[in-house]
Write a protein that binds this DNA or RNA. Structure first.
Lengths: 337, 337
DNA sequence: TTGTACGCGTTATCAC
DNA sequence: GTGATAACGCGTACAA
């Protein structure tokens, strides 16, 4: 009826159902068995009064917020938002929620974001931090707040760190080109300060060697993950080695720049030059030609991280994969030689 | 030193600073002036003990969570995430945080999402809901929780609803094509059940008429916002009117499908046919040719919504723009005839 | 300007 | 299986 006369509390429910507040709490939380008759009486009162538990009071009593903190570089990025959505699906299903903060791949930002989420009293943290040092991360993990590390391998973090096999991904991309008959394959890396860049480069190199193709520094250019960087690097590569027949870009954004540079140079794709990207971001399929790339299972990794976080909370051990393997997505930007 | 022996509370600080708990509270919240000497003594104690206020207790006492709820169709969408980031920047600057939930453009989902955020006790709600009826929205807004409506105009919502002038956007796109000499201009709409679709169509029509070009149903096809839909609709359009020289797609995703269909039909873009999209999502610039489109000021609108929400909380009136105007972003997909 | 004492709504502990 | 009651940590009248 009239729910305007102040807030309905558990005490009101208890009075109406003629039981103690404790019993109401038990019915609602299902912690301890309650006689069926009492139970339904309580539920009836709850419905009639339209009672909603006060999350603040509950949190104060349990010292749990029901929130999981998530940190990624940039939540607007199509790349990270997929990971976040993986976390969310699991967390949501557990009746909890997520709080997202941006780290901007900057140590100070990341530190601040962590502090921020802590002050909000999140129950656990899922971190994708790129700038923070291993030591800082480990120190955080030593605290009492459960922390799960995503897309980053730190040996000392044990089973609390999930990672992607970037080396394997680099191999996948390169092997795909080799299998299509390519022998002169350029590679654009992200900044080599990123472990991901180095691992992908390593995979590229391994695949070449395994196929009996000599590795050459001349074919590798360090770039910056960005479209413009890919554009310029591709131009340099074309000047250095006009005989190149394929380019493996370290991410899709650089690949977009590569496509543009090739078009401007009058090289048709994939007829004259093939291109492979990395990430499989949303726009990869919209590029022209649609981009063959290496997909990272970000959604799955986010979900696994969430499961680990929840398990750390309820104490139940859970089996999740800790090393994720990328997958080749074949589209139109590669052609058989 | 040792911060492992239990939690530091405001009582510990008060004892150490030789003041009452109230005084500590005052210093921390700056509600009431405190003598400078006392103040610095308190701050010193806070620092020494590394005291962090308990957000739960604070919320229980103030009945404020510091959280602003945000609902969008899909938070992974590059489109909506921009709006969310607009909200976040303002909310964050105010020392608060956001909670995001997905509405999936489905009334039941939207209702559930709202209920969910309410149970988390958010202090205000920023809503981008497409399926929920006007009545349901108005009923919600009649409650005690401040609600700001985004990208949706409901007259009865008064100054709590922000909207984009889609009609103007449709005019912009069409006028741009007209100015470039085009006369036979097709238009692909989203589902006409969406007010946005109808408004953009209306703008298209107005621009034609204003330029003395007859409007023809034959040139308009209702589609579904999706790439595949745009692809098929473009094919139909080409069959109906092979003499068409330009297509205005109701959003960028359909425009991507249009580009593909045109390529397959052997019509070069923009030499034979020009294309304009709507939204300016992230991938618009990566399409080939890069897409001329109509940008929606989503970031700004999100920020304005956040400011309104905060103003509703602290009672201070604030001036914000309530009607937003889209803007033409000229790229490579349109050519002068 | 500062201190005292109570209330916020729930869960947990202990008794019955 | 159920009830009484003491925390939980902070804000805030009210008093001094």
């Amino acid at each position: 009826m009239s729910d305007t006369h102040g807030t309905v509390t558990i005490r009101d429910v208890s009075r109406r159902a003629q039981v103690s507040m404790s019993t109401v709490s038990r019915v609602l939380n299902g912690t301890v068995p309650v006689a069926e008759a009492t139970r339904s009486r309580v539920l009836k009162a709850v419905a009639e009064l339209d009672y909603r538990p006060n999350a603040f009071a509950r949190s104060l009593a349990t010292n749990r917020s029901g929130g999981i903190g998530v940190i990624v570089n940039e939540m607007t990025s199509p790349y990270y938002s997929v990971m976040v959505s993986g976390v969310e699906s699991v967390v949501e299903a557990a009746g909890m929620h997520i709080l997202v903060a941006s780290g901007k791949a900057d140590a100070a930002f990341e530190q601040r974001a962590i502090e921020n989420l802590r002050s909000r009293r999140v129950d656990a943290l899922v971190l994708h931090v790129e700038a923070l040092s291993d030591d800082a991360v480990l120190e955080l993990m030593a605290g009492d707040l459960p922390v799960i590390l995503v897309a980053r391998h730190i040996a000392e973090a044990g089973n609390r760190s999930l990672s992607i096999d970037n080396e394997f991904g680099g191999r996948l991309a390169t092997e795909h080109l080799l299998e299509n008959g390519h022998r002169i394959i350029g590679h654009l890396t992200g900044p080599l300060s990123f472990p991901d860049s180095r691992a992908r480069l390593q995979g590229y190199r391994q695949a070449l060697v395994a196929a009996g193709v000599d590795y050459s520094d001349e074919l590798v250019i360090e770039s910056d993950w960005l479209e413009e960087g890919g554009y310029q690097a591709a131009q340099r590569l074309l000047r250095r080695r006009p005989d190149i027949t394929a380019i493996f870009a370290g991410n899709d954004q650089m690949a977009a720049g590569v496509l543009q540079a090739l078009r401007e140079a009058g090289r048709s794709i994939p007829d004259e030059i093939s291109v492979v990207g990395f990430d499989d971001v949303l726009f990869a399929r919209y590029l022209y030609p649609s981009l063959t790339t290496v997909r990272q299972p970000l959604q799955e990794m986010g979900a696994a991280a969430a499961r680990l976080a929840l398990s750390a909370l309820n104490g139940k051990e859970v089996e999740v994969r800790r090393r994720f393997e990328p997958e080749l997505i074949s589209r139109q930007s590669v052609r058989k030689l």
